[in-house]
Design a protein around this nucleic acid. Structure first.
Lengths: 251, 251
DNA sequence: CGTGGGGTTGATTCTTATCAATTCGGGTGG
DNA sequence: CCACCCGAATTGATAAGAATCAACCCCACG
C-alpha cells in the first residue's frame, strides 16, 4: 500500500490509465528508510534525484548563516520532493525527515523517460508543481502579515485539512521547534500560542494529538481559504487524453 | 520590441525554434494598457486567462480581512502572470499594476493549444513554474527568518539582479508601501531601514534610483544566494528537441 | 531511580508597528 | 516664474508583540 502512495496522490488531479499507473510505480521502486532528523539531501548537494515520500512526514528547510532555520514545506506521503529543482543542478533546500520515514529516490532522468512515454503525466506533474506553489503562497501570506496566533491557527487548519480532512482531530507529528521554524516563530512562542488558542476554546491538545474544537471559528480567525488545498484540481488538457487512452481506472 | 518580451525571457531556459517563437508570439497578440494601481484581476475572480507582461512592473498580492496586504511576486517584463492557477478555476491572488504597464491577457485554452503543437514548450513553462517557486522559496526564508534590515537588503539585491544585473544602480519603481507589503514590514519601517543601510554605506539613494555601493557586503549581509536566480537553467529533456527540430535560433 | 529531551512558564529585552507631526518633491494653475 | 497642493517619504515618541534567557516540569527510557 505504501507503494501506491504517489498514485493515490495523483488521482486528486485526474484519473489515471493503467499504463500511467505502471509508469508512476517505477518511481517508487527503490524504497529506503530514514530516521527522524536525518537529512536526505542537503542544500547545495548535486540535485540528481527526486524523492517520493511513501511513509511518514518530511520537510524542506534551509539553514541560515546565523544558525536559524526556515522550514518551507511539510511533505506528507504521496508527495514528490524536489520537483522545483528540476531546472537546477544543485539543491536549493535541505530535505529532512521529521518522523521516521520511507522515501524512494529516483533519478531525474527517469522522470524524463516517464514524460516521454506518457506526456499527460508531464501535465500532471506541472499541476502538482502549481499546487505546491499555491501552498507556498499561502505560507508567504502567513509569514508576512499574520500574528503568531493567526499563523499557528492557520497552520493547524492546513495540516488538519491535509492529514485528516474529515476527522475532528489529528496527529501533529512534529516538535514545536519545527513548527516554529515553519512559521517564523521561536519554539517557546509556539508553546504559548498553542496554549492561547486552547484557552480561547478553539483547540485542545493531549500529547501530539490536536483536536479542533471549533473549526469554523478557527477558519475565520486565521482567515483560512480552503480553495488553495482543493482536491480534484483539473485542467483542460486531460480531456484530450481521456478520449485516446481508453483504460481509465476508477478509484 | 515589447512584442518579443516573453521570448527573450524563455531564452533563459533554452534556445527556441522558429516555430516555437511563432507560437509564443500568439500569446502576446492582445496587448492592453493598465494604469499604475489598477487591478488586472482580483483574487476569487474566474481564472480563465493568463497575462503576459510586456512593459512595466506588476505584482501578485492578497488582501486580508483586516485590510493588510501581502505582495507575493513582483513581475518584470517577460514574465507570465497566473501560471500557478493553471489547475484552479478561480484566482488565488490579485494582479495589480505597480507602474503603468502593458500586458497581454490570453485564454488558458490557448496555452493548451501551444502545448499540443510544441510539447517542449510545456517543459519550458514547467521550468518557469519551478523557477518562480524558487523565488517564492527565497521569499519565505526572507519573511520567516530575517530581520528588517536583512530583508530589505536581500530584496534590493534580488531586484538589482533581475532588473540590472550588470549596472551599479537601478530604478526601484515602487512605493515604499509596496516594498513593505512584499517584505512584511510597515512603510515607515522600510524608510527607516533604507536609511540604516545607506548609513552603513551599503547603498545610496536619490529619488527612485538605488545605487548599490558595496554589492559584496550587501550579499553577505543579507545571506543572498545567487543560485536561485541563475539564468540559463536547463533540463535534460531539451536535448531531445534540439536534435529533431533543426532550426535553433541563436540570440 | 537517575537522565535527558521536549514542553511550559515567568521575567526581561529587543524589534517593529503605530500614531502623529514635518518635510520633500513633483505637478498645476495663476 | 512662483505659490500652492498633494501624495510620498521622513522623523520622533510610544506601544505592542515576539525573542531570549532561565528555571522548572513532565515523562519516556535506560
Amino acid at each position: 500500500m505504501a507503494q501506491s502512495c504517489i498514485i493515490k496522490h495523483f488521482r486528486d488531479f485526474a484519473e489515471l490509465t493503467r499504463r500511467e499507473i505502471e509508469l508512476l510505480r517505477t518511481l517508487e521502486r527503490d524504497q529506503r528508510s530514514y530516521a527522524a532528523g536525518e537529512t536526505l539531501r542537503a542544500s547545495g548537494d548535486p540535485a540528481a534525484v527526486f524523492f517520493t515520500l511513501t511513509d511518514g512526514w518530511a520537510c524542506a528547510s534551509r539553514c541560515l548563516a546565523d544558525g536559524e532555520r526556515q522550514v518551507m514545506d511539510v511533505f506528507l506521503p504521496g508527495q514528490v520532493m524536489g520537483l522545483r529543482e528540476i531546472g537546477y543542478d544543485h539543491a536549493l533546500s535541505d530535505f529532512v525527515a521529521i518522523t521516521d520515514i520511507q522515501a524512494c529516490p529516483f533519478p531525474k532522468a527517469r522522470l524524463t523517460e516517464v514524460f516521454d512515454s506518457a506526456p499527460r503525466l508531464a501535465d500532471l506533474f506541472m499541476l502538482t508543481l502549481a499546487r505546491d506553489q499555491s501552498i507556498l503562497l499561502e505560507r508567504v501570506v502567513n509569514l508576512g502579515r499574520r500574528s503568531a496566533e493567526e499563523r499557528v491557527a492557520h497552520f493547524l487548519v492546513e495540516m488538519k485539512t491535509r492529514v485528516a480532512p474529515d476527522a475532528p482531530s489529528f496527529q501533529l507529528r512534529m516538535k514545536q521547534g519545527v513548527i516554529g521554524d515553519a512559521l517564523g516563530l521561536s519554539a517557546v512562542h509556539v508553546s504559548r500560542t498553542l496554549r492561547a488558542l486552547s484557552d480561547r476554546g478553539l483547540i485542545s491538545k493531549t500529547g501530539k494529538t490536536v483536536r479542533i474544537d471549533d473549526l469554523q471559528a478557527l477558519i475565520e480567525f486565521s482567515d483560512f481559504n480552503p480553495t488553495y488545498l482543493q482536491r480534484n484540481v483539473r485542467w483542460a488538457r486531460q480531456s484530450a487524453a481521456e478520449g485516446a487512452e481508453a483504460l481509465a481506472v476508477n478509484r
